[in-house]
């Protein structure tokens, strides 16, 4: 497989010369983004199914067998709908908002490794790049909320911006623990650092379990998912920052939210759960493990949404600033001290 790809690359190089590199990169980007969009579509179906089951319902089952064509129908519906631009809104920024929301959610995928060789850009500072990209996601929300010229949207965007900036810090500290353990910012190296003869016990989830919890919960908050979806808060501010959006512009926000969810699930799997490494030492490492772990984390996201009521805003801020950040800072020190002792075996 790898040889075939290499020979294809060689042939292209000879045929197209300087134009080959951008073209080939574009093909690789499509190969990642295409399935990602499919995954997003079916994640929405999975969400409705799982939450339905937990509420003793059966979820969508009319469009196609088992409701399998439901995402397609939803997509077509959103495409056909009119995009309404409110009067008094800033038109350029109004359209830019959803684009800015989706852009970082997709750009972050450039450095995600799928297995030891399969990565679009093997960047040394991959982890930093991911942090930078996820921190850009908030601009979509801010721009959309401000450009809509609506007080609900504006309140939603202020809430969301404060929330994302707060939880980013806890998330960053949790990742600092990971990169201390791995001694590298490269995502591939981080996974390889979790390799060992004990399988599951070699993963960073074991020494960094509190950070895993902090990262997972901050991830839920970063993606603006229930129970931290105060930015949307249907019962208080209608739908938050995207209240004025319709049709495809709304769909972009939707795509961005779910793409962010999948991204955070991938990162959790890579940082804490050993990426493509197998949990049992006698089974081979494979990309299947990675997808399995991602599916598990995504299921947790849906499970949380079906279980927990929405946090009140001051509780949410307290959790971020007064619980997670101190906990994460303490654990950075603990890990630092731990690594100086012979007890550190990871």
């Amino acid at each position: 497989m790898m040889d075939l790809l290499l020979s294809l690359e060689q042939a292209g190089q000879n045929l197209l010369g300087a134009f080959w590199l951008p073209l080939w990169t574009l093909v690789k980007i499509m190969v990642i983004v295409g399935p990602l969009m499919g995954a997003v579509a079916y994640l929405t179906l999975a969400e409705r199914k799982v939450i339905g089951w937990m509420q003793i319902r059966i979820g969508p089952n009319r469009v196609g067998y088992f409701g399998l064509l439901q995402p397609l129908a939803d997509g077509i519906k959103l495409l056909m709908k009119e995009i309404i631009v409110p009067t008094g809104s800033n038109k350029f920024l109004f359209i830019l908002g959803p684009i800015m929301a989706l852009m970082p959610a997709l750009a972050a995928w450039a450095v995600i490794p799928f297995n030891a060789e399969l990565v679009l850009a093997n960047v040394n500072a991959g982890l930093l790049y991911i942090l930078a990209m996820t921190s850009l996601g908030v601009y979509g929300v801010i721009i959309a909320g401000w450009a809509s010229n609506s007080k609900y949207a504006f309140l939603g965007c202020l809430r969301s911006a404060a929330q994302i900036v707060s939880y980013e810090i806890a998330m960053g500290f949790a990742l600092v623990c990971v990169l201390m353990a791995a001694q590298s910012l490269n995502l591939g190296d981080i996974v390889n650092g979790q390799k060992g003869s004990y399988g599951l016990l070699n993963w960073y989830i074991v020494p960094l379990f509190p950070m895993f919890i902090v990262y997972l919960i901050s991830g839920v908050a970063e993606a603006n998912r229930a129970p931290f979806d105060v930015a949307e808060g249907e019962s208080e501010i209608v739908a938050g920052f995207h209240v004025e959006y319709s049709g495809m512009t709304f769909a972009l926000f939707f795509l961005a939210e779910y793409a962010n969810m999948i991204l955070i699930a991938f990162l959790t799997a890579i940082m804490f759960m050993g990426g493509w490494l197998s949990p049992l030492p006698f089974l081979p490492d494979s990309i299947v493990w990675l997808f399995g772990k991602v599916a598990f984390v995504l299921f947790l996201f849906l499970w949380f949404r079906a279980t927990f009521p929405r946090y009140r805003y001051d509780q949410l801020m307290r959790l971020g600033w007064k619980v997670f950040i101190p906990l994460a800072i303490v654990w950075v020190v603990v890990v630092g001290a731990w690594m100086q002792t012979p007890l550190w075996v990871w």
Partner: peptide
């Protein structure tokens, strides 16, 4: 200078400017 470039985006764009816009 990829470290500086990413930190510029992370700190200034991702945090400082958000609070500024706020």
């Amino acid at each position: 200078a990829e470290f500086l470039a990413i930190v510029l985006v992370l700190v200034y764009v991702g945090a400082v400017m958000v609070l500024f816009l706020f």
